[in-house]
Amino acid sequence: MKLKDILLKLKEKFLRIDFHAVFERLQSNGKLLLMTVIATFVVMSLACLAVFSVNVKGPEQVLVPDVTGKKLTAALIEMQAKKLYPEIQLRYSETPGDEGTILEQNPSGGAIRKGFSHISLVVSRGVVIDHVENYIGENIDAVRMKLQTLFAGTAKPLIVIASPQYKADTAEAGTILEQDPPEGTSITDPVTVHFVVSRGPNFENTRVPDLLGNSVNDVLQQMARTRLVFDFTSHEAGPGENAGTVVREQTFEEELVPNYTHVAVEFAFPRQTLGGNVYGIFDAVLPAYPYSVQVKLAAKPEDGDAYTIVTFSHPGGAVTIPYAVPKGTDLILSVVSSAGETERKRITVR
């Protein structure tokens, strides 16, 4: 065999053996690489699962401290130590001197919550008013309404008005003349305020008007202009009497009489409706007032808008008012003050 042929055979054999080894080596390394990739994936999955578990578990649970009654600064320090977030709400309180104190909390002390939870704290912004104001010169009804509004919703108002003492004065009736304690008095506990209130001038007298022959409307106008208490009565008009007018009136020896003197006045009313109106006397009993109040009689027809029949001053007690209105009209008696109108009686004319 020639040398050339021998070399060719050796080369051919060498190459065949070498390629086979290389293939086996590659096959062995591929399995190792695959195992490495699988192992890496498993490790990463376990790591992700551990991180996820930690995040799901969240922060550890803590005991909510009871900070009710404590000052805000101390309460915030306790909340911070427990890794809790306070949410602050401000509210007026009823106790002088407790400004900045925790009034309420939610959840309450002793509850279990996760760290970084939100805790609601209601903090006192102090009392609505901390001193007695000057009420002299104001109307007592207006002051009452003001204080009621100021302390609305509180179980223990800080200012209470005692039963006023009334006296005659040139100031308008209901005006506060004196007060005790004086303006500027500090409020540390609920305070009872005593007022001296004007009854109005007691030296003024009134001229008694001549009402004989007057109609109901004429008499109503006189009621609005004078400070007298008219006690109205009526009877069915007889022969020679003008139906719907005054036929008798009390007389006095003196031309002038003291304010709110009672004057008896009698009407002769028609038996049936006259001019589409029903005639009558509206009567009611009011509380006895220390000074005169404004009294109003209003009418609300079945069809139409309400209107005022008369407004006049009255000291309280029995009230009588003549009327001439259509059948079915509602008559409403109210007492008018600076605080508004208070309905006292309502009837429907039949």
Score class of each variant (00 low, 15 high):
1 M>N: 11
1 M>I: 12
3 L>C: 07
4 K>S: 15
9 K>M: 11
10 L>Q: 07
16 R>F: 12
19 F>S: 12
20 H>Q: 15
22 V>F: 15
23 F>G: 10
26 L>V: 12
31 K>L: 14
39 A>E: 08
42 V>T: 13
45 S>T: 15
48 C>P: 01
50 A>V: 14
52 F>Q: 11
52 F>E: 11
58 G>T: 00
58 G>D: 00
58 G>W: 03
60 E>S: 15
61 Q>F: 14
61 Q>L: 13
61 Q>R: 15
61 Q>V: 13
63 L>P: 01
66 D>F: 07
67 V>S: 04
73 T>A: 15
75 A>H: 06
87 E>N: 11
94 E>M: 06
95 T>D: 07
103 L>H: 06
103 L>C: 07
105 Q>W: 03
106 N>Q: 11
112 I>T: 12
113 R>D: 05
115 G>W: 04
117 S>H: 05
117 S>K: 09
119 I>M: 06
120 S>Q: 13
120 S>K: 13
120 S>W: 09
122 V>R: 08
122 V>S: 10
146 K>S: 10
149 T>C: 09
151 F>P: 04
152 A>C: 06
154 T>I: 05
154 T>S: 09
160 V>W: 08
162 A>C: 05
165 Q>R: 14
167 K>G: 08
169 D>W: 01
169 D>K: 07
171 A>H: 10
187 I>P: 04
192 T>V: 14
193 V>D: 03
195 F>N: 04
195 F>C: 04
197 V>G: 03
202 N>P: 04
219 V>Q: 06
223 M>E: 05
224 A>I: 03
227 R>L: 03
231 D>W: 03
234 S>M: 11
234 S>E: 13
236 E>F: 02
236 E>N: 08
247 V>D: 01
253 E>F: 11
254 E>L: 06
254 E>I: 02
256 L>G: 00
260 Y>Q: 00
264 A>M: 05
266 E>W: 00
267 F>R: 02
268 A>K: 01
270 P>K: 05
272 Q>F: 13
282 F>P: 02
284 A>L: 02
285 V>T: 14
285 V>R: 11
288 A>W: 05
292 S>Q: 05
293 V>E: 08
297 L>N: 02
299 A>P: 03
302 E>N: 10
307 Y>T: 09
326 P>W: 08
334 S>P: 01
